[in-house]
Amino acid sequence: MNQQDFEQRNTPVWTRLDEMIQAIGKRHGKDQRDAKQVEFPHLYRQVCHHLAIARERQYTTHLIDRLNQLMLRSHQYLYSARAGNFSRVMQFIGGGFPALIRREQRLFWLAMALFVLPALIMGLSVYFWPEMIYTLMDSSQVSQFDQMYSPSSPYIGRERGSDDDVLMFGFYIYNNIGIGFRTFAGGMLYGLGSIFFLFFNGLHIGAVAGYLTQRGYIDTFWPFVIGHGAFELTAIVFAGMAGLKLGFSMLAPGRKTRLTALIDAARVSIRIVYGVIGMLVIAAFLEAFWSSIKSFSPEIKYIVGAVLWSMVLLYFIFAGRRHAD
């Protein structure tokens, strides 16, 4: 078959594929289901085949270039990202996430230790020697905390407006999830960044808790933090754990090359980060709209807090026990 016949015979295929690409392209990837239909991959493979033939038979460069371009463009669409489907997300929440955390248990305990131990030690030392807090904060910050949680402060006992709630919601989203992300990203520095964030956050939280407890602001401080703490503190530990996974993959790549070990580890860690995002959003919601409510008695806050904590614990211990992946 000479080139002209070849072109004549196959041009309909090429124009059809070209049209399909343009049609998909116009929708800016919002709906790429078309690309996954039977016809598109079929046409695409046909063009790949034509390209191979054209090369083999040394048809003109012009034709080869044209086919090559067509192939390249459709390649981009055929292998484009699939939108995460709903049931996969649900499965992840329903069991994949806790199963993943349990599979990486050792990292979890490590991250936990890096966070909880400094918090405990710092908390206790500040509780017994309150001046220890100044090793971490300066006096203006300390007095700010004093003011916020002192039962005599004008803020306490007064209900906050909805606009304050929204402001704080925005702030928690902005600040806390950002911290979570940085804790994860820090793992890229051979885990040092994650360790630093875990350790430092632990120290800080421990110090504040120790200090406020020692000052006797128990009824203003603890009821406030107990509820969202269940999600926020665990999420920070998870973020650190995801970061540590990155770090370890580079320190001890095993039989893989350092780079592939890193890429593989990142694939797993990012799934942990998905969960962290979800938990921090829940935490921000609770912190802004539940923890701030003043009209409930501390007992109710403690009970709800206990319920939330046990929910989180039960979820991570039992959910998705026999999940295959």
């Binding site: 990837g29 402001l167 704080m168 925005g170 702030f171 902005y174």
Partner: peptide, 27 residues
Amino acid sequence: RFGMGMLLIIVFLLEWFYPVLFEIYWR
């Protein structure tokens, strides 16, 4: 304050997810 809260959320979303969303939806 409501506006500030919304602004913070917008800043958060844009800082972290602006590249992600564009990269996904603009190929």
